[in-house]
Design a protein around this nucleic acid. Structure first.
Length: 422
RNA sequence: GGAAGAGUGGCUGAGCGGUUGAAAGCGCGGCUCUCGAAAAGCCGUAGGGGCGAAAGCCCCUCGUGAGUUCAAAUCUCACCUCUUCCGCCA
């Protein structure tokens, strides 16, 4: 959510930002409703002031007659205030729903573009893996080795699910260990969060109206949403709270299962575990002071790159353009890993600076030295999305005989150098 | 799921229909004292919103939302959260 004062004073910036994000907003209507809302509010407040004044006088009045007269007068006032209350409520409702549609403004330097085709490659890191044979698709390799089973998953759960078996399951544990070991050293607090959220919390993260109920799993009986990423529980965990300035930045590292309906992805990546309804992910989340969020974003990107470098997987970094940013983000980088069988890079990481957009909705602030309260900035970034990292490992570490080498950085965690056919 | 109790400012906690946005203590900030610190003393210290150039004036908020009343932290209802007990359970 943006600040209405900011919107009033920076109309052009807001319009331009929404346009570049490809979001339709009716800012004229918003300003109208805002004006109406303030007028009604003023009238209502005047009336309340009158009543408050009378309420203070009444207990002092000795004269029963005078007293009765004022009480009658106040009763009459009430009838009017009911009408004003209704008016205020309806303009406030419209105001809120219009406000909720206004996306965060892209930061300076974010490339303007309509969709993911206009994202900008910042750099390529690592040599694209070379083979002296034709590299196979990860699923073929994994199924031969019997470490990923999507057929049986389909039998019990439907499409877009998978079993990780044997060494694949062990690899997940190793990846978790690698991340926790390295990032806890950097001051991240390890977290295993709830994966169900109340509606108002899901709303607060700014993804609900964008994807609507389409993307999130909703548990009807309990009115809870399954989280699509730990970002949602890490970001809401401090809602309504006030940080001490000295406690910022606060960095969390959350491991959780993620649930996605993938409702808009019919026909996309239907095979295998690249795009599934359920996967595990380790997510970084930072709360920081506004003046530090640009640096913090670079910091998160660096952590992501370090992890990819530890696995020695070739990747490139994208600066995401305005049209591909999403509602809450003001800036975003993606990392895509090299996938030999497809001869292209595919997304494994994403890190966003949401500035104060989420903090405003969730009312997360910090107290500065002078005692003043300000909204924090929130940022998130993938450490590892297990399924996709597994894919990039299998693809890049495959051998001619169908076995998979295990990245050196992971070997220490389960005393195995190769995954071979049994 | 059943029963009982509770939710007040950064924290502890008083208030249980009327000058109470809220006592007291702690904490925090400033000042005095001190070579400095501690102790002591004095003063200050909730958030949000509207109007205004500002000073300031006003409104809202005692878990949330409705209601009763001229008037609600205080009464009623619903919901949320927590605690204890019973049931179930990894």
């Amino acid at each position: 959510m943006l600040d209405i004062k900011y919107i009033r004073e920076n109309l052009q910036v807001v319009k331009e930002g929404a346009k570049n994000k490809g979001v339709d907003i009716d800012i004229g209507r918003l300003l109208e409703v805002d004006k109406k809302r303030r007028e009604v509010l003023q009238a209502l407040e005047d009336m309340r002031a009158q009543k408050n004044k009378a309420s203070k006088e009444i207990p002092q009045m000795k004269d029963e007659k005078e007293r009765g007269k004022i009480i009658l007068k106040m009763r009459e006032l009430d009838i009017n205030s009911d009408r004003l209350n209704q008016e205020l409520k309806s303009s406030e409702e419209e105001f809120n729903s219009l406000m909720a549609k206004i996306p965060n403004i892209p930061l300076e330097g974010v490339p303007v573009g309509k969709d993911d085709s206009e994202n900008v490659v910042l750099k390529e890191v690592g040599e694209r893996t070379k083979f002296d044979f034709t590299p196979k698709n990860y699923l073929d390799i994994a199924e031969k080795l019997d470490i990923i089973d999507v057929d049986r998953a389909a039998k019990i759960s439907g499409t877009r699910f998978g079993f990780l078996k044997g060494e694949a399951a062990l690899l997940e544990v190793a990846l978790i260990n690698l991340v926790f070991e390295n990032l806890i050293k950097e001051g991240f607090i390890p977290i295993i969060p709830p994966v169900m959220l109340k509606p108002e919390m899901a709303w607060g993260m700014g993804y609900l109206e964008q994807t609507n109920s389409e993307e999130a799993y909703h548990l009807e009986a309990d009115n809870l949403y399954l989280t699509a990423t730990a970002e949602q529980s890490l970001g809401t965990m401090h809602s309504g709270e006030i940080f001490d300035e000295k406690d910022l930045p606060r960095r969390y590292l959350g491991f959780s299962t993620c649930f996605r309906r993938e409702a808009g992805a019919y026909g996309k990546d239907t095979k295998g575990i690249f795009r599934v309804h359920q996967f595990d992910k380790i997510e970084m989340f930072s709360y920081c002071k506004p003046e530090h969020s640009l640096n913090e974003h670079e910091f998160l990107l660096e952590r992501e790159e370090k992890l990819m470098q530890a696995l020695e997987i070739p990747y490139h970094v994208l600066k995401i353009c305005t049209g591909d940013l999403g509602t809450p983000a003001a800036a975003k980088y993606d990392i895509e890993a090299w996938i030999p069988s497809e001869n292209r890079y595919r997304e494994t990481h994403s890190t966003s600076n949401c500035t104060d957009f989420q903090a405003r909705r969730l009312n997360i602030r910090y107290k500065d030295k002078t005692g003043k309260l300000n909204f924090v900035h929130t940022l998130n970034g993938t450490a590892f999305a297990i399924g996709r990292i597994l894919i990039s490992i299998i693809e890049n570490y495959q051998q001619k005989d169908g076995s998979i080498k295990i990245p050196k950085a992971l070997q220490q965690y389960f005393n195995l150098k190769m995954i071979k056919n049994k």
